[in-house]
Design a binder for these strands. Structure first.
Lengths: 200, 200
DNA sequence: ACATAAACATACTACTTGGTATTTTTTAGT
DNA sequence: ACTAAAAAATACCAAGTAGTATGTTTATGT
């Protein structure tokens, strides 16, 4: 029983170190050797717990990456309160409060979406899953906003949801190119205007 | 003189094959060997014309990638006519008319932005350059639209420009995850609504 | 205490990578 | 025709890659 626990601890250690290296240096350029050097464990230990780099990659996406999006972008949508204010809080304030590091490194999910091979179906499904969770939660919030009369009723919830997500992921990529926040501030101004347009 | 021409032809051949492979399989996973196999030339030929893979990458970005964005997204903005209609034409119709391949592979520029290392300054500058060209052209069009009274005067041109670009690049990444156009169509509905909000 | 299996380590393989050194072929100017 | 340089080919290297084979250590159930 203590063995199972240790095994789980090791897997978590590997996943965490792997996520950090993927985020820092990209998925393809991060080797198993580099990951296991970080854990101070050996390559043998890795292949005892995982059958391939791909299996690890899928676990990093479905556990680590997904959890971050759920905690940062999805759960806050489900809290009670004015739907419009929640959108403002989640999309605008969250963007403002990102650390310099997060601004420079971009969105872990978006990085993976655009780095990982376009024919790597398994990764795509895992990533699409996260997007779908996010979209669904956003649609629910927008529907709620319509009912509570804080958001316009003549807008398509799905359309607004995917438009918001696209813009958010888009700017997180573009921001990486700059060494200051100018482009982010312009985006925030554009986003603020957009949110006003869907507000009652 | 004919030698210079041949040299230029060879470089163009290498750039074109490299761009295609980068677009198809990503930058990092495309080796010089693979590129030169496509050209049916040798590795010696490559290193006669380029001093490193990095030099080639920068040329592919500043020549190939940039030209595609200029032709597809920037030059159309400069044509005469109603500013609002041009925005509709360039952003909505262009997205609709993408080939299946272009939908599945995403935007070459966006792929590079999110794949290439966050500490690779030279690449970032080359990519930022393209974004700035695009943004500037969009701002000019929006300003024109304000003057010609087809776009609202109380909007920030820069904010609208970067918001449009972000959303466009964002959806091109997200679309790659799907095997149909559903998410694209929802996005187009969202974008159509947005454009109406900045229309007079 | 002891057998068994899990957890981990070491050493290795076959292959790919960016880049170099050296040679051969082609072209241009005289 | 001859020479010099450009263009391209061949052969190579050291470092890194995912994955395997085979060991050693540690925990667990009896």
């Amino acid at each position: 029983m203590q063995q199972e626990l240790k095994s789980e601890m090791t897997k978590q250690l590997i996943i965490n170190k792997a996520f950090n290296l993927f985020y820092e240096n990209g998925f393809k350029t991060t080797s198993i050797d580099k990951i296991m050097k970080e854990t101070t464990l050996s390559k043998g230990a890795f292949y005892h717990h995982y059958k391939s780099k791909k299996e690890l990659g899928l676990e990093v996406i479905s556990l680590k990456v997904q959890k971050r999006v759920v905690n940062g972008m999805i759960l806050p949508l489900k809290e009670s309160g004015n739907a419009y204010q929640i959108l403002e809080e989640v999309f605008i304030n969250r963007l403002k409060e990102f650390s310099i590091h997060e601004k420079e490194q971009g969105c872990p999910m978006n990085n993976l979406i655009n780095e990982i091979g376009n024919n790597e179906v398994a990764y795509q499904i895992a990533l699409k899953n996260i997007i779908e969770l996010w979209k669904t939660a956003l649609v629910e919030l927008i529907e709620r906003g319509k009912r509570e009369n804080s958001l316009k009723k003549d807008i398509s919830s799905k359309a607004v949801a995917i438009y918001l997500i696209s813009a958010f992921e888009g700017i997180r990529g573009i921001r990486k190119l700059y060494d200051n926040d100018s482009v982010l501030e312009e985006f925030l101004s554009g986003l603020t205007f957009y949110l006003k347009q869907i507000k009652v």
